[in-house]
Nucleic acid binder design. Sequence first.
DNA 1: ATACGATTTAAACGTATGTTTGAATAAGGT
DNA 2: ACCTTATTCAAACATACGTTTAAATCGTAT
Lengths: 227, 227
Amino acid sequence: MYDFVRSFFFYGSRNHLMSQPDTKQRILNAGEHLFARDGYHPTSLRSITTEAKVNLAAVNYHFGSKESLLEAVIERRLEPLNKIRLGQLEALLEKTGQAGESPTCRDVLRTFIEPTLRMRIHGSDSEDFVALIGRILAEPRSVAMKIFMHHMEPLMNRLFYALALSLPELSRQTLFWRVHFAFGSLSHIMRYHERQAMIPEDVNIDMPVDDLIELFLDFATAGMEAS
Amino acid sequence: MYDFVRSFFFYGSRNHLMSQPDTKQRILNAGEHLFARDGYHPTSLRSITTEAKVNLAAVNYHFGSKESLLEAVIERRLEPLNKIRLGQLEALLEKTGQAGESPTCRDVLRTFIEPTLRMRIHGSDSEDFVALIGRILAEPRSVAMKIFMHHMEPLMNRLFYALALSLPELSRQTLFWRVHFAFGSLSHIMRYHERQAMIPEDVNIDMPVDDLIELFLDFATAGMEAS
DNA sequence: ATACGATTTAAACGTATGTTTGAATAAGGT
DNA sequence: ACCTTATTCAAACATACGTTTAAATCGTAT
């Protein structure tokens, strides 16, 4: 029986001694890497299976199709990441709510940005994923975008609510556009984590994550709070 | 003789009564539209020539290859746009220089952003081009990116110089990153000029360009000037 | 040992792609 | 009218792609 069909009925219930080798994970890793580096369309299943050192048919056997593989690649990391981001956001809302205060804009943004950028750290196994999401955010109307948005909606609504709390003087219109701007910045630095053209030699592109996070929060918070 | 070979030797010197029909322009328009809407790789020459109502071979005859067509599409609008942006920037530097002052950050950013976003106006013939550039900026290492950067370098250097003048207290390091952030925001709104997921119903996505420019300058200037 | 389901493998399938070809047509100069 | 050149056109080319197939192999329970 095809593995991806079985998964549909027995999701997560790998039976008998976990007999399966790491084929699935190897495909996910290779897909994540190549989708992030070259984009979805230019990446062929043959390049993925070569890098993963598995047979060409393994992708269709385990995932059903190239598109489903992309979905699996996204879900594997986005699900836990969103759990962390939502957890931190709810904790912040809880804490400030009990004190009868509004959260600060910087703190709200931090719950979203910090867990994201921490994945970007060099050598991390989720390094490629960050760049992949950056690319996806830049492709309106793509299948990837649809998959991504499906997983983002609840978190986005909550984030928007928290930001409105922290910036009560802004109109919904203005708030939305500024969130839009801030997301643009974030997706941009998610993509560019390697030295590119247009970057002067004396600029440190490999800035420590913690510094980058504060640098970005300085920028984004000031932009959001602009009078 | 192939047209694109002739162009190499007699660039811009169409001789005798401009006998050529609008085939080249129709291809450029269709390519601009489809590259912007679907991306470079997913767009086939057949879809371009169908939309342009020309023969399939016309692209290779007039431009040489799909990649050269992309280059022509980019150059057609980027060249005049950059001339305008550089002109406004030099005028600003001249004016403030003669008064012995530094330009303001907002004015410097305006010379770059205003001509760009004005192209985004609905119904404009360069509307698609803005989205295309937005996409290109989101694809590091792509051919499109290389073509684009080649045309941007002089302007970028000058812009960086002017921004350093307007924000003398910032370190080069910080200045670079904030420019990076601002460019991320800009490329994001260049892509998203249609209603997408994640956009609340009561938000006006078709905001007048002048309002959008000021809205964005508020955000970007505050971010650049953050203390 | 045997049987059985899960997985791997090599090969093939059908289709879509960018590009090339060579003939046909159009246009202008002499 | 004729020649020359530019352009259009239908057809074919070679290749790369995602997917499917059917046999081979592996692992485990009986």
